[in-house]
Design a protein around this nucleic acid. Structure first.
Lengths: 345, 345
DNA sequence: CTCACTTGTGACTGCGCTGTCATGTCTGCG
DNA sequence: CGCAGACATGACAGCGCAGTCACAAGTGAG
């Protein structure tokens, strides 16, 4: 075969020998350094690490597994039912991946973690992958996804990262717009927005959709309250809104916040939907059963995952073919009992 | 090195050459068959597949990746916040895995899927793993986990599967007992149970704990209603209980069902907790914000994952060492507003 | 009946690493 | 001063597969 494999961009991935040559040692010594073996002098270690850095060397996990007989991987069997709501996006990705004949490597990153998304991507490249899915990312500034494998970004603008990125639309903007319009059509003069953290692209899209719906009808845009997706932050926002007493309709950027919001309004003696209408986002499984049942926007996680993966697999297997963009999924507003016309003045 | 690697049990994993020899063909032809290449006669294909079956041959994914330059894997970057509630178990596993220097391979299986857990495990073995975690399994009859890597089973009796299994206790029984006792201590004569599907070990443990708490105090055990974990099934159960009119206290096997249950009771004109008290299980993020805020048992997903993984990694790296069993995590009953003394007669 | 082409198969090689063994060089101790 | 042991490095083989090329046998057109 021709050595090209992992790095598709033309440049060939450096091997341990290359590092060895540059550092003036044997290939075996490079291996020693990278495995933290004993009996390597400090001087040599530094030279090797320096050379590796310079070349952008990355241990080839397949070769390592083959030679050592150990994969350094642990498998997890999960039951799909445990992963509902936004988590079900992962289930969708898993199934679509398996159907396409690929295996899944999962890395998790928490908001505020120093390594962040870039670190997670690094970790995946170490493991060896043909493609990467970044699910619902946050804006961490200019992330240098200078990666030579195709990247699928779910729920972020296509400009995210640099090269070889395909994006699958989520239509979050249209969905947020529909939610807002629903409230306006009920007769509310304007709609308040309880936004998600604005570092999340998903939160921004929802904010934009809300703004657009109001702007279309020349409605006043009340100040935005920003939550952190949690029910607790929704509760805090609810207290603010109740104290203010202005709002008759609120669009919350996810169901958890909507539920916390409703709780705070109820605690403050306001009735939902008679005094204040609330719309959520996601349609989590309990949304239909909370009090009152929540009007919300259903996310088509499965379709999103399936469609995105189709694009990604195509980018892997037929890099030259023009990506056939995904048709936007239909907006699915589920009207339940948390919305009603505004109270008579 | 000595060929032993993947299969620890002593038997050496068969290679393509072994299959080739048995089938009377070349190694390359075996490769052809397994890659579905053109130009293999039907006769040869059958012979190869037969020989492979006989030997229990499994393509070595590391060698394949090394030779072909393609890993056939796709990486996913998720943000931890999307995985809450039971799903956060996966986050915990992922972090613990990474901290231990391992990578994660995830396979998902849905209830009722023909291949089931055994199929998922097969898929992991195909990918190549040093150990396997089965998270919250269901009883699919005698699952032959005749596997040569250590298996960690979270939330099932140690007898699950066959060999090299370590189990991490979840203390579900004690937790269910505590939930039930809480209701009895409030003065309820007995406690109804809305159980999870009994194929799930987790559901059985909770049922057992409930029974034990009642038996301890010689209380009558009302008939058990079995749900499917969903809020919808909780709602159905709630209608039954409301029609019956007997129950003053219900312990639901998870929060979703508890929320559905409360909704049904409320719809039927019963007040929670004045007329009927309800306890849930899991402490999902919205539990504190639904109406009324839910008394529930908090699951220590993170601790569970961390502890279990410690055992698994030890089984991988020091197969001979006696596993140090995990101390049971403390029971964490979170009392909120959905429970109260029974109504005066 | 020949020639070009399709079909079916095997020999050989190398992917990039780790394990093993050999070979030093440097200590400290009797 | 000589020798055992710790320390430091390299040469070499081989992990199990897929890619490449060679080649034999069958097939249909001219």
């Amino acid at each position: 075969m021709t050595r090209a494999g992992v790095q598709g961009g033309g440049a060939v991935a450096p091997r341990a020998v290359d590092v060895a040559r540059l550092a003036g040692v044997s290939q075996k010594t490079v291996s020693r350094v990278f495995n933290g073996e004993r009996y390597v002098s400090e001087d040599v270690r530094r030279r090797v690490l320096g050379a590796a850095e310079e070349l952008g060397y990355r241990l080839n996990s397949a070769a390592r597994a083959l030679a050592s007989g150990r994969t350094r991987a642990i498998g997890v069997v999960t039951l799909g039912t445990a992963l509902y709501g936004p988590a079900s996006l992962l289930v969708g990705i898993e199934r679509a991946t398996r159907d396409a004949g690929y295996a899944l490597r999962v890395v998790n990153t928490l908001e505020g973690e120093p390594a962040g998304i870039a670190g997670a991507v690094e970790s995946l490249l170490d493991q060896g992958v043909d493609g990467i899915v970044v699910s619902e990312p946050i804006d961490e500034g200019p992330v240098a996804l200078g990666v030579d494998v195709p990247v699928l970004v779910l729920g972020a603008p296509a400009e995210f990262g640099a090269s070889r990125v395909v994006a699958a639309g989520v239509a979050a903007e249209a969905q947020a717009r529909a939610a807002t319009e629903h409230l306006l059509e009920l007769g509310h003069v304007t709609v308040h927005h309880l936004a998600g953290p604005q570092r999340w692209f998903a939160a921004r899209d929802r904010l934009t959709g809300w703004r657009a719906a109001l702007a279309d009808r020349d409605r006043r845009q009340p100040p935005v309250i920003e939550g952190d997706w949690s029910a607790a932050s929704g509760y805090a926002a609810g207290r603010e809104l109740a104290a203010d007493g202005e709002a008759t309709a609120v669009f919350a950027a996810n169901d958890d916040m909507a539920i916390g919001l409703i709780r705070a309004l109820t605690d403050a003696g306001l009735r939902v939907p008679e005094d204040v209408s609330v719309v959520g986002f996601d349609d989590i499984p309990v949304a239909a059963y909370v009090t009152p049942p929540l009007t919300t926007v259903r996310q088509q996680f499965d379709a999103m995952a399936r469609e995105g993966l189709r694009l990604l697999v195509q980018a892997i297997e037929k890099p030259d073919a023009e990506p056939v963009p995904a048709g936007d999924p239909p907006v699915d507003l589920v009207v339940r009992a948390s919305t009603a016309p505004p109270p008579a003045r």
